[in-house]
Amino acid sequence: MTAQIHSFPPSPAITVETLPLAARFSLRLRPEHREEAKAALGLPLPDRIGRTATEGARRALCLGPDEWQIDAPEAEADAIRRALPRGLAHALVEVTDREVTFRLQGPAVLDLLAVGIARDVSRMEVGRGTRTVFDGVQAVLVREAEDRFTLAVWRSFSPHVEELLQRGAREIALGL
């Protein structure tokens, strides 16, 4: 079963789509081993929480002092699984199937996020990401562009989140 891409509702202010699954890993290691990991992965690991780094189609998002989310095309998953040497103390755990990722886009995207997120998302710079809460559900939010975000939540929470995104998008379309 693969996730379907669908959009709703037709509104110039907002589109919401569910992204197809790509490889996603949680990488944990001590910050002093970042350089070693970078060399092995061919991907820099940002040293500040909330920063992202990309190399080719791979992206690393620093979520905590010793935690990075690695996103990559499915075709590169095996290479990533094998990249880090056994001698390097780390944990690389695949979480591709754990999550559903929505992409939200449009001029009213900040209003839509404000339906569920208490933090001030407008202060988030493009290219940054963070773990946060959307309507009580833990989520990872990444700002891809001024008016484009991705919001990833655990699989079983996604219908709840999707329903609220849909409600919020409708409100915005109504202009209320």
Partner: peptide
């Protein structure tokens, strides 16, 4: 301790 915990409840 060099050990890390990752929730995989929904991975599987």
């Amino acid at each position: 301790l060099d050990v890390w915990l990752t929730s995989t409840t929904e991975q599987w």
